[in-house]
Write a protein that binds this DNA or RNA. Structure first.
Lengths: 268, 268
DNA sequence: GAGTTCGGCG
DNA sequence: CGCCGAACTC
């Protein structure tokens, strides 16, 4: 089998993001999803596992390579690819010692930046200030390392719903750490460097979400969701995107994550 | 379908004991095993569930009646039957308030006493003294309530390997709370009232076990086991026993109990 | 090694 | 609601 494999013809790339809420608890769901969809690249957040316990063999067996960085209990990012992964780096290059939330790598000449943006707890908290600062650092990261004309794909759980149509109840949720003008501006400031929201470019409609809280039971059934998982592409890359969609099937499985994959197809 | 059902002809009874190590964790294994073997009666130990959380519906659906008594985390006994269950009682009738370890009931005119005998922790411990006392109380229980000529079946996890042939390494295990002369004599003292070990009556050979410790990995594969789950019958009943065997199949399943069922067939 | 409970978290 | 980790039992 060629590296490009079956599902994706040579010249095409299918790339997805999925907050799995524990790679170990979600192993069958992730493995099944990779087997059924054969994306070229899957970016994963909230692996919640130390590097020595990462369940790599399950992915070896189905023909995926991977890089990852994690810790006990919280955070953790990984990248799975059917193609060789080059130049993997983790975290910001500034002086702060950080949680494992950023993974950068190149696949097929495309730069992929997988982030798990801090959720922020509540508006008046250190965690929220850390979230805003994290966006600022990420803006500097892109400015310092890349040009807006480079093919860069920033994707992951960004923990921001960009607009009113991205939450199920924009009135009552206004002010939430993932849905308020300040955090939306923090996201936009990073976007302004040169990113477009691939899902929104392909679908103008409300009611499409990537996350439904476990705590509100029946949230998924009633579609009480949030669109906080995103694929953001530089313009040259965005023009090669032929489709972007949310696959809610994994959210219907037994013992699902509270998130579901967002997928984009590219002519590449 | 008649109460006697398919697998067992009228006049025959198949009765089994199985320490499930959590009835909830083992639900698919127990339901599948009942469906495949259709015993008339199954006695279960270590249900590890409070009565209000007992998963009865799964057994309603496959045509089994049941009685049970449990607690959070530890212990707990249950009896499943394809026939009506009569006169169910729990625990000793003495004054001590006890853990849920004894369940007595009648099925088809046969008295069944299902016990989960205390394991005993280590020889010089209160738990071990409690175990020895528990056997003494059980002896009194049989003497006070039944005659040796009654058809009584005492079964369950008795936490004693009666002889050297009942453990995989009688030399190194000698002195264990489940394998030492004192605890064997405590068992024999109860047996002396009128019980025979049905498995041993039907099979004189070593190497047949009902329990393999999870902690020694590959214990099951290497058959490093213990025969501590038993069916003990009064003589009139023992004479009606046509077969007694250990079914190790459930121990080979995914996420197995550390024990496996012991089964006896009767002309009844 | 594999069940359990419980508290912390989102 | 469902993850994790820690402590407990067998």
């Amino acid at each position: 089998m060629s590296e490009e494999g079956i599902a994706t013809a040579p010249g095409n790339m299918k790339i997805a993001t999925f907050n799995v809420n524990s790679i170990r608890a979600r192993l069958p769901i992730v493995v099944d999803w990779l087997g059924a969809n054969r994306p070229d690249v899957l970016a994963v957040q909230e692996t919640k596992v130390q590097d020595q316990d990462f369940p790599g063999e399950a992915f070896d067996e189905i023909g995926y390579r991977y890089v990852f960085r994690g810790q006990k209990s919280y955070n953790g990012v990984a990248l799975f690819s059917r193609h060789p992964i080059h130049d993997a780096e983790f975290g910001f290059d500034d002086e702060l010692k950080d949680e494992p939330r950023l993974l950068k790598a190149s696949v097929n000449g495309l730069t992929i930046v997988n982030t798990y943006v801090p959720q922020g707890f509540q508006p008046d908290s250190d965690k929220y200030r850390y979230k805003l600062q994290w966006f600022a650092r990420l803006g500097a990261y892109f400015r310092n390392r890349f040009k807006p004309t480079d093919p860069v794909l920033w994707l992951g759980d960004l923990n921001v719903a960009p607009q009113a149509i991205d939450v199920h109840d924009p009135v009552s949720l206004l002010g939430h750490v993932c849905f308020n003008p300040q955090v939306q501006e923090a996201l936009e400031a990073v976007m302004a460097w040169g990113f477009t929201d691939l899902f929104r470019r392909h679908c103008p409609d409300p009611g499409h979400y990537s996350f439904w809280d476990y705590r509100a039971s029946n949230a998924f059934k009633q579609n009480l969701g949030w669109r906080i998982d995103h694929l953001m592409a530089t313009e040259t890359l965005a023009q090669k995107c032929t489709a972007c969609y949310i696959d809610s099937q994994p959210r219907t499985a037994a013992r699902p994550s509270d998130h579901t994959p967002v997928v984009a197809d590219f002519q590449w």
